[in-house]
Design a protein around this nucleic acid. Structure first.
Lengths: 228, 228, 228, 228
DNA sequence: AATGAATGAGAGTTCATTCAT
DNA sequence: TATGAATGAACTCTCATTCAT
């Protein structure tokens, strides 16, 4: 175990000074873990960055993994909370989707460590990894199910829809937020276009379709060109 | 042809015995890397599993990373080839999507190490990681663009659509292949339902819509129940 | 008087509250040192057990070793005092031996940490270790010499006899008090039998010897059986 | 676990070079453990002394403790074997005792690390500690029981006698081999005197007793003087 | 006197890689 | 080619002790 427990030393600091130290360490850990991954990060570097002595890390965390797990949980709840705030008060469910997607991209842009930390969690602590996605999915599923019940969305299996939408957001963010910052408006529009109407051609007016086709074809070729 | 031809990144064995040793090592590596991750895996364990001596690893691979990168590339090309085979000769583009999704799930079920190896590639060798997804996306985008051109699919930005569909497949596979083996037919149906028609309620015949709604609503509730 | 008077090796508390804290720490130290050994014990655990803060230890002891040494000395003097009390007023010297042996076993049973603390003292502070045994041996030798002088015991080198008797008591206690609680009366009887008459067969009356032999032979075999 | 196992790396070396390395490490470990105790010894120092690299220790031992336990077992069997050799062919049982005692003192003198290593084993690995004494005691008890059966020794509980004799030897060795090298002949004589005839005064010829008394009294006083 | 945060030297252990055979 | 011993840098974690409050 750790050297501490109830009376002597705790992991939750009691003094204000302790609070500050712990926070500094956690922030440094978020940065370093995001930069180097779990294995690549060293406690020494985290402490150096936090301006603490090596041993101080263990005043606040039982071990390296615990700090990592705390970060995963924290990123998850920060993300969920930002998403909730972003869609608050929006009535139209498709607008909710748009705002949510946008908010996710913003979050990812402000927390570029998100992907690396969450994805590597699978190797560090599978439960934390599952927790992250399951909590997101649960909230998402519930929202979708409600909207379907109320006739605002087409009726689908909400959990399948939730994982589909999460996967979309995840991959689009990886591609256009992480790898190559692009015109996010365009990405959001494109994604909304897809998730709103799906792939299949509506049994519709041929003239309109042709016009649209020409337009997007150009985009298509440019995109393909750009990436080998 | 590309930067990953046989002679680059690997030390090609000349004798048949060497061929066999190399393959045994690679198979062992795939297993161990999939089980323990890149950092967690040790060359010693790989050699033990392959029945080779510790030093022999370096007869065939310059270092640990090289073997890992080769695996990522190999998984990528095996997957692309299986997908291509699976959809070969299918005319209807939506049937192509269905068959592709199914083939991906099958592949993931047979290569449960896929997710762990590919995802961790980001930390081991970012180029290999990008290559994996970019090659998949390029092929996918091209196919979608063609189908859109030919009027088989609604016209969308094909790269956005490709990443969206890849994200869907990835997350659905993670959820229903990796985490919890479920009724894959149901998942494929649900995913096709979503990706075909999207979320928005069609401005359609009220009677049909109502009927469908009631039917699927029951499914919905069951699903929610089943997964917390 | 000697080099271990109250004010040396300890920081004497002045207030009553201080007295209590010091004692609590010492008791906790005795427990933890006995449980984990000198190196295995941590100041943190001692403080936790004592209900004190980590820093408080150093209010009363200059360092870890000082507390340990104080315990060794204290165990030594407590033991010597109990032994002295136990044999007080006993006239027959062999009865003194019996009572002393018994008292030692009782002490060891009540202070199971005794062996571990004293034996490890050799590594922590050799002088304290020697002091412990030399003081015991000195008192013992004196007593034996006196009894020999007075014709109550056979005349032997008293120091050799003292160390022999201490070794006997030590090992018998280790075996039948520490390791496996047995029938102590039987052990005391057996030990007295040995230390009274020694190993050699007296040039005695054949009939009695034969009878005794048969009787004890049975005990013998049972004992051997019982302990592998 | 260790990085090694069946095919890749073993703890038992297969090459002659490996044999030599292992032996060098074990000898160095015996020296350093004996000098500094288990906790005080560092693998680094052992390797330095053995002329090996730090990591090589772990080629042959899974951890520090394993090497220690191996030493305890090895000391135990070396001692038992020397004792067995020393008494081989001796008919008179009391002569066996004398030769055994002497052999033990010799062994202790040549392996001054014996006491420190064995005694600290209690904290490092209790089973090894028990094994050491129990094996000695078992052999000893058997020998004593046989001699008692055959009428060569007075009949006593052989296990009690064995532990008594082991304790005597242990303490006498500690006092006159380890602490202060003395006249071992005198110690052996004195010990034999005690263990042969015990403490009690035989109901014998007064004249002889008086003579003996005077002789030993002088020794007594000298001894007492010498040690405070 | 008491608290608990801070310190940092030092430990055991792992393991990718090299090398002699 | 194959083997397995050898290497040593690097890591996580512990804990006695000090110090500011």
């Amino acid at each position: 175990m750790n050297q501490h427990s109830p009376s002597v030393g705790r992991l939750a600091p009691v003094t204000a000074r302790g609070q500050r130290s712990r926070l500094r360490l956690l922030r440094a850990a978020e940065y370093v873990f995001g930069q180097k991954g779990f294995e690549g990060a060293s406690i020494a570097e985290i402490c150096r960055r936090a301006g603490s002595a090596l041993g101080s890390f263990y005043t606040y965390f039982p071990d390296k993994k615990a700090a990592y797990v705390e970060l995963v949980d924290s990123l998850g709840s920060r993300l969920r909370s930002e998403l909730a705030t972003a869609v608050e008060g929006i009535d139209d469910r498709l607008d909710v989707e748009r705002a949510g997607l946008r908010a996710f991209f913003d979050f990812a842009a402000r927390h570029r460590q998100l992907y690396r930390i969450v994805r590597q969690a699978e190797f560090v602590d599978p439960p934390a990894f599952h927790r992250y996605y399951r909590k997101l999915a649960a909230a998402y599923s519930t929202g979708l199910a409600k909207a379907m019940d109320e006739g605002e969305l087409r009726v689908l299996d909400p959990e399948i829809a939730a994982y589909s939408l999460m996967g979309m957001a995840d991959f689009l963010g990886m591609r256009w937020v992480l790898w190559e910052t692009g015109d996010l408006d365009h990405v959001v529009d494109g994604a909304m276009d897809f998730l709103t109407g799906g792939l299949s051609v509506p049994p519709a007016k041929p003239k309109l379709a042709t016009a649209a086709k020409r337009t997007t074809k150009r985009i298509t070729k440019a995109s393909l060109h750009a990436h080998r």
